[in-house]
Design a binder for these strands. Structure first.
Length: 969
DNA sequence: CGATCCACGTA
DNA sequence: CGTACGTGGATCGC
């Protein structure tokens, strides 16, 4: 059956624009070409793989502000970002290329592409009932057009969405899509919808009631907040619905025949001319293949004397050596998403998975793995070996192995059980590790795993020291896109390999009746476990290709992958914590809390739950006549659901002489103490490992958007230090007998990074002079001598110094400088600052510009963060994008720096101070445990590594402290 | 029991 | 209406 592909042009243009590394330019005309390159790559892949009979591209006509939607609702798409200049230029180029290929480009004035698509679909349904239609788009609005023969199609993943898939993913039929969209709204297009209802709730309600009308008729059956929200906002729903319903009676000039894919109708000479002009040699080759017999003869010169070969010398830009390529991405001709053909195809079928049950089988597999994975000869690596462990618990330090799975060939994997419900059928731990261990500890065999840190620790607990880690698909995914909501294997497998993994819940169940992995029958546990290493292997292959295509191979291989072992070491080491000290402090605070509760009850007009911000707000801000009644104080600040009762508010009330009640001050103290007890004193004691007497917190490498690490279970990166009661908690973190804790931290790391990146002479000079940086900046800004700087001036300068790397605003600074500082005054301080430190201002602007031009910013090591907010038409959102752009470059570069230091320390310690252990990283600080006698040597070694981690334009300064516990430090 | 909000600890 | 996190209690809905 014939198929018509309708490409949603701008969706694909936009996607290519962001998927492909910017910086590509035509060697002939110097015009930007990266989007054109990406779009043509997509188009050719479609032509090659799907061989459509009919193809058309649909785009919005220029000046689409006059659509019927903006007439009925002026806010429609008011959030839309203006397209970047170089996008527009390339769209025109793509349209020209399409015409040369004789692909129709449908654009109807004042009509959105979606409506044009809807019109074509409806017309074809009437005229050509048997025609298959694939709409190349992922826009959920188009779901309403889906029927038995009309699908949405995503060429990047080859994923097709039809009636069934729509039902599977959302539970709705195509005719219900409009109702669902109306209910949930669309912040991107500014379709209102009901606030508080997202896609999940909307889909559920529409499924349940069948339609929006039925829902509204039975609104009394919808309980709680959801029902109230709909009732309150029901008037907006007809408008929302009219915005999302596609118009299918547009006047559009289209015949199926005009869309016939026919290389014979292409203007082959002009087409290849243009492609060569753009410098796309590979695409030219593919186009020749598509044109087949219609391709012009090589060397014919294109008739009109165009450029068909040997383009002019590429534009090469000079980059100063110290510029680390920050704003100078090399103009490489690469895809960020290299072809995954083959990999994706194998995915749908279950692989060749075996469960090994005898010594002989294990021996045979190990031999074949060694054969395949051992280096072929000097410099020629063998195959990659993916490994994965199954364990009895999720805490790797105290867990037991259930088995190990291994894979070295995509689609094939084995599971070697160690603990299972069928112990008689398999080998014991010693027998397995004696055979598999040598593969894992052999540094010449390159290994990969998904979240290798976990497996490295679990294996170390079993006595196996993994060596030769060459990759980690979770880390690769993070390097490709740090802002992904998750880098879990099953999610990546679906997104990248088009493969749905066996859910772990199939094996161990869910909720409180969960079983352990070793209790699951091998018949299902085996394939599940084998799949893990197979998928890890295939993800590593696919993602590392993306890493390389993005030019991030060095960051990945020399920083992030080696860091996995360092973090495994940190977690393995843990930090010793004294439970008695925690308990003593807890008892002490509980007494104070008890007394406070009593005083709070006396201060309050009636009983209430002190822990409930909502009830507290009622007590403070309701009037005596309201119900529930309250003290009638003036609301200071609002949250999105009511009056705020946060510190700022309570402090203001405490200082307000007209406020008589002691309640705010008492609540402040109560909150401080209960926070310490609940979040730290109790939780930390519970986190102490019974066997080691230490806390083995997790350090995560793939969580933050900026490149920082994060810590959890428990979080050891937010142990109190600012208040005295809080800092006391650090007394419970202790060194082993005869040892000390040594802590070293970078002084002013982010400001120094800023000085380096901006190369601002004044800031550099201030750091080189080694004076108090806040005082120096104050002297500069206020034009005073260093010795004349007042405390107030220094404090303001400090505030600005911190604020500047967050993307400070006058409003924010004024608020922080305290009452009596006007926005105008704050503005003036910032302006003075930017004038005195013009290099910084220029740098901040470069960050924002970088985000605009490329859609992402990059750190010193080239780490990227997409900043989609920068293109928002919404002012607040765009301002957020600007702050993110600035902060990410500075914070992320500082994170790069300390990661380099950690690697160097990790490598040097075994020879320089083998008795020392690295325990914690707190963003700019490292904590070690070392025998007291080796403290001096360790301090020297670490200081040297930290200060020499990178050569910056300013000196790096490290300060240190030590003691038998973390507080004496 | 999970999701969401508020509040608050750190760099 | 400066950034980046993780956690705990309350609350809501399933």
């Amino acid at each position: 059956m014939a198929t018509l592909y309708l490409i949603d042009g701008h969706a694909q243009f936009f996607r290519a624009y962001h998927a492909i590394r910017p910086g590509m330019r035509s060697p002939v005309t110097d015009e930007p070409t990266h989007m054109t390159f990406g779009f043509m790559g997509m188009l050719l892949k479609l032509l090659r793989q799907d061989r459509p009979e009919y193809l058309a591209v649909v785009i919005d006509a220029a000046g689409d502000r006059g659509t019927f939607r903006s007439q009925i609702y002026p806010e429609y798409k008011a959030n839309r970002k203006p397209a970047p200049e170089d996008l527009h230029q390339q769209v025109e180029r793509c349209v020209a290329l399409l015409k040369q290929m004789s692909v129709p480009v449908l654009a109807v004035a004042e009509v959105e592409a979606d409506d044009t698509i809807a019109t074509v679909v409806r017309r074809m349904r009437r005229e050509q009932p048997d025609l298959e239609i694939k709409i190349v788009s992922r826009d959920k609005d188009l779901g309403q057009l889906v029927d038995e023969r009309t699908h949405l199609f995503d060429p990047q993943s080859d994923k097709t969405l039809g009636v069934e898939e729509l039902f599977d993913s959302k539970g709705v039929r195509p005719d219900q899509v409009v109702d669902m969209l109306a209910l949930m709204g669309d912040p991107v297009d500014n379709v209102p919808g009901v606030r508080g209802i997202g896609i999940k709730t909307a889909a559920k309600l529409i499924t349940e009631f069948g339609s929006l009308d039925a829902l509204l008729a039975n609104l009394d059956k919808v309980k709680g907040k959801t029902g109230e929200a709909i009732a309150a906002q029901r008037d907006i729903l007809p408008l929302s619905k009219s915005l999302v319903v596609l118009k299918d009676d547009v006047v559009v000039d289209f015949t199926l025949e005009s869309a016939r894919v026919d290389p014979g109708r292409a203007d082959a000479v002009a087409l290849l001319d243009a492609i060569h002009q753009l410098g796309f040699n590979r695409i030219a080759q593919e186009l020749r293949g598509w044109l087949g017999a219609h391709a012009p003869k090589v060397g014919s010169g294109g008739g009109g004397g165009g450029v068909t070969s040997a383009p002019a010398a590429p534009v090469v830009r000079a980059a100063p050596a110290e510029d680390f390529g920050l704003f100078n991405p090399p103009p490489e001709d690469v895809f960020t998403a290299p072809a995954l053909d083959g990999l994706a195809m194998q995915a749908s079928a279950r692989g060749d998975y075996r469960t090994l049950r005898t010594v002989a089988e294990v021996d045979a597999f190990v031999a074949s793995a060694r054969q395949a994975c051992a280096p072929k000869s000097a410099g020629v690596p063998g195959a990659l070996l993916a490994f994965d462990t199954e364990t009895t618990s999720l805490n790797p330090v105290s867990t037991h192995l259930c088995g190990i799975s291994l894979a070295f060939e995509p689609g094939k994997a084995v599971y070697i059980p160690i603990r299972s419900p069928e112990p008689e059928t398999h080998l014991d731990e010693a027998a397995v590790l004696a055979r598999v261990g040598p593969l894992l500890t052999d540094a010449t065999i390159r290994k990969t795993a998904h979240n290798a840190k976990f497996d490295i620790i679990a294996l170390r607990a079993a006595g196996v020291r993994v060596a030769g880690l060459a990759g980690d698909s979770m880390v690769a995914s993070y390097v490709v896109d740090a802002t992904r909501s998750t880098h879990k294997m099953d999610a990546l497998s679906e997104a990248i390999l088009e493969h749905r993994c066996i859910p772990i819940t199939d094996l161990i169940g869910t909720g409180r009746h969960q079983r352990r992995f070793d209790e699951a029958p091998l018949a299902i546990a085996g394939p599940y476990a084998a799949e893990d290493s197979d998928v890890a292997l295939r993800l590593a292959i696919a993602l590392e290709a993306q890493v390389d295509a993005m030019g991030l191979g060095e960051l990945y291989r020399t920083t992030e992958v080696p860091l996995v072992e360092v973090l495994a070491e940190l977690e393995w080491n843990g930090i010793k914590v004294d439970p008695d000290e925690l308990e003593r402090q807890r008892r002490g605070l509980e007494v104070r809390i008890g007394a406070l509760r009593a005083r709070i009850e006396q201060s309050a007009p009636r009983p209430f739950n002190i822990d409930s911000p909502k009830q507290l707000a009622e007590i403070l801000f309701n009037g005596p006549d309201d119900s529930p009644s309250g003290l009638g104080l003036k609301v200071v600040k609002r949250t999105k659901t009511g009056a705020s009762t946060d510190v700022e508010v309570l402090e203001k009330l405490t200082l307000d002489p007209t406020v008589q009640t002691l309640l705010p001050a008492q609540i402040l103290e109560y909150r401080q103490l209960t926070k310490l007890v609940g979040t730290y004193l109790v939780a930390l004691r519970e986190a102490i490992d019974a066997k080691t007497g230490r806390i083995h917190a997790s350090f995560h490498q793939t969580v933050t958007a900026t490149g920082r690490l994060s810590s959890s279970d428990p979080n050891l990166q937010n142990i109190p230090i600012r208040s005295d009661v809080g800092r006391a908690i650090r007394r419970a973190f202790v060194a082993a007998p005869g040892h000390v804790l040594l802590s070293l931290d970078y002084s002013q790391i982010e400001l120094r990074v800023l000085a380096h990146l901006s190369q601002d002479p004044s800031l550099i000079a201030a750091f080189e002079a080694g004076t108090d940086i806040h005082r120096a900046v104050a002297a500069e800004v206020y034009g005073a001598a260093l010795s004349d700087v007042t405390d107030e001036q220094r404090s303001a300068a400090k505030m600005v110094n911190f604020g500047i790397v967050y993307g400070i605003t006058a409003w924010g600074l004024a608020r922080r400088l305290g009452a009596g500082t006007s926005n105008e005054r704050a503005r003036q301080i910032i302006d003075d600052y930017k004038r005195r430190f013009a290099g910084i201002d220029a740098f901040l602007q470069r960050c924002v510009q970088e985000a605009h031009e490329h859609g992402f910013v990059a750190t010193i090591l080239g780490r990227r963060r997409p900043v989609p907010q920068i293109l928002s038409r919404n002012g607040a959102e765009r301002a957020l994008g600007e702050r993110i752009a600035i902060n990410t470059v500075v914070q992320g570069s500082a994170a790069d720096l300390i990661k380099c230091a950690m690697l160097r320390i990790y490598r040097e310690l075994p020879t320089r101070v083998p008795s020392a252990r690295m325990l914690l990283q707190i963003h700019d600080e490292l904590v070690f445990e070392v025998p007291a006698c080796d403290r001096v040597a360790l301090e020297a070694a670490v200081r040297e590594a930290m200060e020499g981690a990178m050569q910056l334009r300013v000196p790096l300064v490290v300060s240190s402290s030590y003691g038998s516990n973390w507080a004496e430090d």
